Simulated assay, not measured.
Amino acid sequence: MSYALKTTRPLVNVLRMTDSEKLPGMGFIYGSMDNAKEEIAANLGNEEGAYKEIWKIIDDKREFQLHRHLQAAAYYLNPRFQYLDSFSTHREIKIGLMVCMEKLIPNEEDKL
């Protein structure tokens, strides 16, 4: 029972946040999923063997359903995440931002 609570509570918190009327979920879900994974690891004593399988399930689902360029751009532009020490600047996030910018500003001369 303890294991189930330690591993699902962070994910339920993300789900509740995305269903909230207080915050728009788009700008928060990418970073919140990363935070939930870290919380799961901490809840399980940061022992990779204890959380590795759960992280894989999360990553598989995230890759299929949540990992989109717009999600990455929303994360990158969200000030709540941008000023944290844990802010991620992985290449995939920057690519997501650039792809969205290309769609918003398709003309080269407008980019200057």
Rank of each mutant, 00 (worst) to 15 (best):
S2L: 12
Y3W: 12
A4I: 13
A4Q: 12
K6S: 13
T7P: 03
R9V: 12
R9P: 02
P10L: 09
L15C: 10
R16K: 12
M17Q: 10
L23C: 08
L23N: 05
M26T: 02
Y30D: 01
I40E: 01
E47H: 00
E48G: 04
G49F: 04
Y51D: 02
K52G: 07
I54C: 07
I54T: 11
I54N: 02
W55H: 15
K56H: 11
I57C: 09
K61A: 15
K61V: 13
K61N: 15
R62E: 13
E63S: 15
F64Y: 13
Q65I: 14
H69I: 02
F81R: 02
F81M: 01
F81P: 02
Y83C: 03
L84A: 07
S86G: 01
S86N: 06
F87K: 06
S88E: 13
S88C: 12
H90E: 11
H90I: 00
R91E: 13
I93R: 00
K94H: 08
I95A: 10
I95W: 03
I95M: 05
G96W: 01
G96N: 00
V99Q: 05
C100K: 10
C100E: 14
P106L: 07
P106N: 05
N107P: 01
E108F: 11
E109N: 12
K111V: 09
L112W: 04
